[in-house]
Nucleic acid binder design. Structure first.
Length: 351
DNA sequence: AAATCGTGGGG
DNA sequence: TCCCCAAGATT
């Protein structure tokens, strides 16, 4: 690993950001910020939780819906758990939604509804880790904290031609990033590095010709930018099988089940079903005459593929389930379900 | 501390 | 079809 010819200049990146900052619903852009406008910490926090491992494009509509329905953190704190989980449905990583509610309630009851600016205090909040604590501190409060997300890791690995594979390289990349963080406009700077990573210093085909840090980039000098950052090889995903039972009562009600808070899809509504493994045993939630849908519901989670066999039944009013509870037709909205469960539902209507 | 935890888009 | 990737946190 060699040194860059000229040290990277944070103000050069800020000048680039002044011209190329992306517009986002939660963002106060550089010009508005220069005129004294400040972001709402609640909106910054909410956006940062939603953006964890999630694309900006996927987050936008959810952010608009949440802020329209719950304009302040105290509104969110007062929401019903089921309403928040339903509003989060489809966005994934559902522990974020459970922690979001916990955090809103802690902020409301223990912090007078006001977000702290100290990253050490922010770190104690549910769902707030090192990245998010630094992001809230820097972006919402303009304190010189260093954000290290996937963008920053990629930018730093190239700037310093760091070939140590992630995640082992994280500490040294964090130190590179910390050393560059300026005292002036730290909030804009944090967003600038991430915008650079998202639009110029991209994973594939980086637009080095447009990069304000090109002259400082060791990978650019060495021609290694395309192979950085290095990453440890990841295991292939196994395929698991399972059964889902979609039970309709004669009055139109559907049999649904709230999943336990721990584990996959924790806290979400779903169809009663079997375990998901190599050879699942059937686990019908009610006595009925079952029909098997020809097509399977296929879905890929973070660490496995799932092939779900969907069984349907129509049952009389008096029939009692061993699991789950019937939800009236008017109260049922398939968009309240996580995607895999919505796929199973869609199979019942696509024939 | 490696494993777990979703989803949709792009190459 | 398959893999990679996205403003990571938790246990």
């Amino acid at each position: 690993m060699s040194k860059p010819r000229e040290p990277a200049d944070p103000s050069a990146l800020l000048e680039w950001y002044d011209r190329h900052a992306r517009a986002m619903p939660w963002r106060v852009g550089p010009s508005a910020r220069a005129q004294g406008q400040r972001p709402d910490p609640y909106r910054i926090w909410l956006s940062e939780i939603m953006l964890q491992q999630t694309t900006v494009a996927a987050v936008k509509s959810y952010f608009e819906a949440f802020t329209a329905r719950w304009p302040r953190v105290t509104d969110l704190a007062a929401a019903e758990d089921g309403d928040v989980m339903a509003a989060w449905a489809g966005l994934g990583y559902y522990a974020r939604a459970r922690n979001l509610l916990k955090c809103a309630r802690v902020i409301t009851s223990e912090h007078n509804g006001i977000f702290p600016d100290d990253p050490a205090v922010l770190l104690t909040l549910p769902g707030v880790g090192p990245y998010t604590a630094a992001a809230i501190s820097a972006i919402a409060h303009d304190l010189p904290e260093t954000v290290v997300d996937g963008n920053v890791e990629r930018v730093m690995s190239r700037l310093y031609d760091e070939h140590t594979p992630l995640p082992a390289a994280k500490p040294i990349l964090t130190e590179y990033a910390r050393a560059l963080t300026p005292q002036q406009r730290p909030g804009d700077y944090a967003q600038a590095v991430m915008d650079l990573g998202a639009t110029i210093c991209t994973p594939r085909n980086p637009a080095c010709g447009l990069c304000p840090w090109r002259q400082s980039c060791t990978a650019w000098a060495m021609g290694t930018q395309a192979e950085l950052p290095k990453k440890s090889p990841k295991a292939r995903k196994p395929t698991r099988l399972g059964y889902a039972y979609l039970v309709r009562r004669v009055d139109g009600a559907w049999l649904l089940e709230r999943r336990p808070d721990k584990g996959l899809l924790g806290g979400m509504l779903g169809w009663p079903g079997s375990d998901w493994n190599d050879a699942p045993e059937e686990a019908p939630p009610i006595r009925a005459e079952w029909k098997t849908i020809e097509a399977e519901a296929r879905h890929t989670f973070t660490h496995f593929h799932l092939r779900l066999t969907v069984k349907t039944a129509l049952v009389p009013m008096e029939r009692q389930p061993s699991r789950g509870e019937f939800i009236e037709l008017e109260a049922f909205d398939p968009t309240d379900l996580p995607t895999v469960m919505r796929k199973a539902f869609d199979l019942t209507r696509s024939k």
